[in-house]
Nucleic acid binder design. Structure first.
Lengths: 139, 139
DNA sequence: GTCGCACATTAGACACCATCCAAATCAGGG
DNA sequence: CCCTGATTTGGATGGTGTCTAATGTGCGAC
């Protein structure tokens, strides 16, 4: 993740303690936090960080293409730092757990011209839903 | 759509003017209204209908499986009455226009066991993103 | 090293979407 | 036609995200 900080500095980002903390929180695989969760964890490392800064920073990371917004949850947006390895999501319908997955094939190719209605299609987002092992046992 | 009303009555739904109006509003192909838009259109037909009733009715239609909630828009939930013909969505990244599409192939089959993490996968949701013809011309 | 200023951060108000609630109303079986 | 439990209502409430004006600060210039 220090890669990320390097890359951002290279793009003229001013390096602040707040931004460093947000970047640290968004580290790892299968990380899909809401803005509020990011804020909570950031506060643990830097008590005076404000909600607005977390939102600002997340928004910047998204427009720089370093973090993805995912809408698997219908309540709040979630942020996925794994932006450089294209992937989709597998969500537990019960507990909301999210895993990154890498399906075979390219769903873009499955959309025939006749179904494109003249759109220039550039991207596709796939969400698989099911029940995770933990919830299956509990049921 | 009167089919819908019949089916609901058969399931023991008490038929009220409000529910009839909501069902009428949610009629047609490529209809993807937000709850608020449904409310606005419902008020045009039945001025005294309240927001809470629209939300209640939409929620009931969703749990009965007659209407789908779609999260293509990151602001508000949208409601799709085309629940009985499985389909996916094509969204204009610029203006937000939504079309129903029917891709070839079955994306569920593209998820190998090794990528399922023990989940029982039952459903998949696909959102294509691009630029619609109207916005392409305007650009 | 230090200065300056454009860029960042902050707290809190605000807007939007959705849900909850207690009281009033109504559909439809008997 | 009446009764009862389902339904509707309006307003309060809560969660998520954005905005603003005032304050603070990273970092290039010197």
């Amino acid at each position: 993740m220090s890669d990320l900080l390097e890359r951002l500095r290279g793009r003229g980002w001013r390096m602040t303690a707040q931004r460093r903390v947000v970047a640290e929180v968004l580290d790892g695989e299968h990380v899909h936090l809401t803005a509020d969760e990011v804020h909570t964890r950031a506060v643990a490392k830097l008590p005076e960080i404000s909600r607005a800064t977390v939102y600002n920073t997340l928004g910047e990371l998204v427009s720089l293409g370093e973090v993805l917004e995912v809408a698997t949850d219908k309540r709040a947006k979630r942020y996925d730092p794994n932006a450089h390895r294209p992937h989709h999501h597998l969500v537990c319908a019960q507990c909301g757990a999210i895993r990154d997955v890498h399906p075979d094939g390219n769903p873009l190719a499955d959309l025939p011209d006749s179904e494109r209605f003249g759109f220039t299609v550039s991207d596709v987002e796939v969400t698989y839903r099911g029940i995770c092992p933990t919830c299956a046992v509990a049921a």
